[in-house]
Amino acid sequence: MRVAFVSNVVYPWVTGGAEKRIHEIGTRLTNRGHDVTIYGRHFWDGPEEITHEGITLRAVAPEAELYAGERRSITEALDFAVRAVPPLRRRLREDEHDVVVASVFPYFPVLATELASLRTDTPLVTTWHEVWGEYWEEYLGALAPFGKLTEHLTARTPQHPIAISEITADRLAAIGPDRERIDVVPNGIDVGQIRNAPLPDRGYDVLFAGRLVEHKNVDLLLDAFDAVADDRDVTLGVVGDGPERDRLERERDALTHADRVEFLGFLDDYEDVLGQMRAADVFASPSTREGFGLTFAEAMAADCTVIAADHPDSAADEVVGDAGFLVDPTVESLTETLDAALGGRRPPTDPLNRAQQYDWDAVADRAERAYQRAVAGSW
């Protein structure tokens, strides 16, 4: 099978979740004898076409800034989409690929890929990491109708859709394809890498890792931890950065047990994050909006007791199941469960066993079958 991925960002030069997913699935497909090509921006040194870990990287646009302030750049996304059409269309007309896989966000590459594949027999597979819906209001404000319209148009583009979680699949079905046509292939982790990550010089009893934005509800965790710390000699580490950091640090400074809470910022080395998870007893993230929740899977593989928020906008319940604890996103509920977990309470299912289903090898199996169904026209 000859698989083409279309993504403006390319791992490991850009290290976000979507591009890492392509890399992990792509390298496993090449190891199984498939031919894999990524059409992306020219982030690497050297010629426009190189082979990296068995994957052909083909630059169709120069390197560019991805963000305008805190938001992804619309101009960059449009520029990449326009530049990608001619070379991709030429290769598809030459029947070079059996299937093209496009990551949905930031949407325009999907529309460009559909345009490039017109009048060819090459199926388009899309990977939906989230469906934003009303979140566009918070993200774009007055420009939210533009974001919603683009999302709806993308959802209605002829495609073989993959969602990374059941909740994302349900949201996609509400604006586009029939639910039974949407396959679910989750994001993945390297269980072996997590289990062997080096332990840090200093660990914490409770850990949070993620972007410091409002819906992560780190302020609830700070208050719950402070209440539990009245009776327990415990520490809290907060890994990550974001627009809420200054406010959260001020809230930390007002806690009774502020000296037991440390903000570690963004850790450049991924294994440092994994090491912190291995050192922690409890991983707590009361986030109310998670398209998947990769940190929960990572923390389970690190044998943490996971505490997550039970919320209709979060896929945490899908990821964690009964291998962790789900709480209402309130200080009271989080305090009660955090105290019990620190007291030795463990979930019914072994977190390590649960984490195995998210290992990249298992995820690549599911992705491979989905791509083969698209090629066979049996979706």
Rank of each mutant, 00 (worst) to 15 (best):
W136G: 09
D95R: 15
A315L: 08
G265A: 09
P348G: 06
R119W: 00
A144S: 15
T335P: 03
G321K: 12
G210M: 06
A284V: 05
A163V: 11
A301H: 00
T150W: 09
A308K: 01
Y139M: 12
L199C: 02
R346M: 01
L124Y: 07
D350A: 12
V320D: 09
V273A: 03
V363P: 06
G54I: 14
A112I: 10
L143F: 06
D183T: 15
D219W: 08
V213Q: 10
A209F: 03
V110H: 12
D231Y: 00
D233P: 02
D303R: 11
F43L: 10
I50H: 03
D253R: 12
V184R: 08
L338A: 03
H152D: 12
A302V: 01
T330M: 06
A81N: 09
T349D: 14
S7N: 15
F266N: 09
Q357S: 15
E76C: 07
P145F: 06
H23W: 12
R232F: 00
R195N: 04
A81M: 06
A370R: 14
Q276D: 02
D178V: 02
V10A: 11
G291Q: 09
T337Y: 00
G265I: 13
R156P: 01
E214V: 11
A367R: 02
L66S: 11
G192M: 05
D269S: 12
E94W: 00
T288S: 09
E24G: 04
F225R: 11
L124Q: 09
V327P: 02
Y107S: 06
H129F: 05
R250P: 01
L352T: 11
A364P: 10
E76R: 11
N187R: 10
A309K: 05
P123D: 09
E70R: 13
P158L: 03
T337W: 00
D219Q: 15
V60T: 10
T56F: 00
L274N: 01
Q372F: 00
A59D: 04
E65G: 12
E130H: 14
F225G: 07
E94M: 07
F296N: 09
L115H: 10
D339T: 14
R346W: 00
D268N: 14
E368D: 13
I194Q: 03
K20T: 13
A142N: 11
Y135F: 15
R21K: 01
E138M: 07
A169Q: 09
P86H: 07
G377D: 08
D190I: 07
G275W: 05
L352V: 08
A209H: 04
S314A: 15
F108C: 06
T126R: 12
V85P: 05
L153I: 15
Y67K: 13
H311I: 05
A370D: 01
R119D: 12
Y107A: 05
V206A: 11
T51M: 01
W13R: 13
Q276H: 15
A258M: 05
D350W: 04
V110Q: 13
G275A: 05
V239W: 06
T349S: 10
S7W: 02
M300S: 04
L221I: 10
V375N: 03
L294T: 03
I194V: 14
Y204N: 02
